[in-house]
Design a binder for these strands. Structure first.
Lengths: 217, 217
DNA sequence: AAACCTAAAACGAATATTCATTCTTGACAA
DNA sequence: TTGTCAAGAATGAATATTCGTTTTAGGTTT
């Protein structure tokens, strides 16, 4: 028996994943050809097809891995005790996110990969379910956190905790989008922005602006 | 001259754009084949290629049109006088956004198209510039708006107005992403979420960013 | 010797695009 | 009004290319 060590196999697999991730972040899943990937990872077709059944499996592996990293960032930040205020919480999420890197790629690469994972859910139902399930978990954790805000007297408005949780997650997602599009995201922007919002006075619930009526199903 | 009426030409062009938009929203720009588009619009290849030089031009036309609609929603909402509070403002943006529809497609379709426009900027530099320029315009308009908040005493924290503006835009972008991914976005979620954030107390502890001295909460 | 990998060639399927052809339109002459 | 006819509009099978993948034979490492 002359087998290569398991570490070698793992390293090869990682080498492929990293190279493919660079390609995908650069040009997108479907505008990247397998030949692009082969050239980037520096391996032959036969080698790559030994580790992955095909392009779809490679995409699925990278997409799942990327989303898992995102989810971990959200959950790790929300585990802090006592619950930090939203600016600190989301700042931590974004900081973890910006630290997450694709080996050998620039700062924008991971964000670009993430927004492509979003679009890939259109085609890949399995991935869509993974994402839906993952986000539901985050929502629940963050809803509990918002409820803790209310109980400690930090949150005054009488609004569903779930709505606040979804809004916070949306803000983080938006900054991921901005990082992917413009690559100029600094954590302070988000932290300051949230502090600014939190410092604003809440208008009385019955605000007769008139031009917009809350009629939506 | 034996030509067909200009209205006919315009209608054909729109027919192609609408059908292609449905395809692209469903499966993405690059996973959609021209034959898919041809079948969806009910025209032959030759007919479509009379109106568009090729797939790239079709993609560019649809992407630009979609982003223009988004930008219009942001700007129309920000033109309201007096400046409405962020919850009302972003609520209006999201309402306008959810009204924007691709003819013959479901509620998620337009949001799905938008997130694909984001990813398309990776490949299309021209489109990337259009987006960067457009978002910069929105940022400036919204920064002015946040400054108006501060002057009217609504905003207390001493944070750059631009940071608050970017955070608000990020929140809207995040809800667009959620609508694309899960399709269950209601405007009230965003409105409640922002009201909740605005009702929270700003911590007075020194923040890691430096000597931001918050005033009364 | 067995597992790993390479390099190159070849594969069929799928792709975007073209082009020779047919159909349709509408201005104009009768 | 009616008939004519060329230009415009549309067709769809054919084209060349590119794609992902498999196969081949040979070489290298353990």
């Amino acid at each position: 028996m002359a087998r290569v060590s398991q570490e070698h196999l793992d390293a090869r697999r990682r080498q492929i994943l990293d190279g493919a991730a660079r390609c995908f972040a650069r040009t997108g899943f479907h505008a990247t050809s397998m030949q692009d990937v082969l050239a980037e990872v520096g391996l032959s077709a036969g080698a790559v097809y030994r580790y992955f059944r095909g392009k779809e499996e490679l995409i699925a592996a990278i997409a799942t891995e990327a989303f898992t990293a995102i989810r971990a960032a959200f959950e790790e930040a929300s585990r802090a005790t006592p619950p930090p205020t939203p600016d600190v919480l989301l700042g931590a999420v974004l900081r973890l996110f910006l630290e997450e890197r694709i080996k050998g790629a620039d700062r924008q690469a991971f964000a670009r990969l993430i927004i492509q994972v979003w679009t890939e859910t259109l085609r890949n139902e399995q991935l869509a379910e993974t994402l839906a399930h993952g986000y539901n978990g985050m929502r629940e954790a963050w809803t509990a956190l918002v409820n803790a805000y209310r109980e400690s007297g930090l949150l005054h408005a009488d609004v569903p905790a779930d709505h606040v949780a979804r809004t916070l997650i949306a803000t983080a997602q938006g900054f991921i989008a901005q990082q992917a599009l413009f690559g100029d995201v600094a954590v302070e922007v988000l932290e300051d922005g949230l502090r600014g919002l939190m410092s604003m006075s809440v208008p009385s619930t019955a605000s007769p602006t008139g031009d917009v009526s809350p009629r939506e199903a």
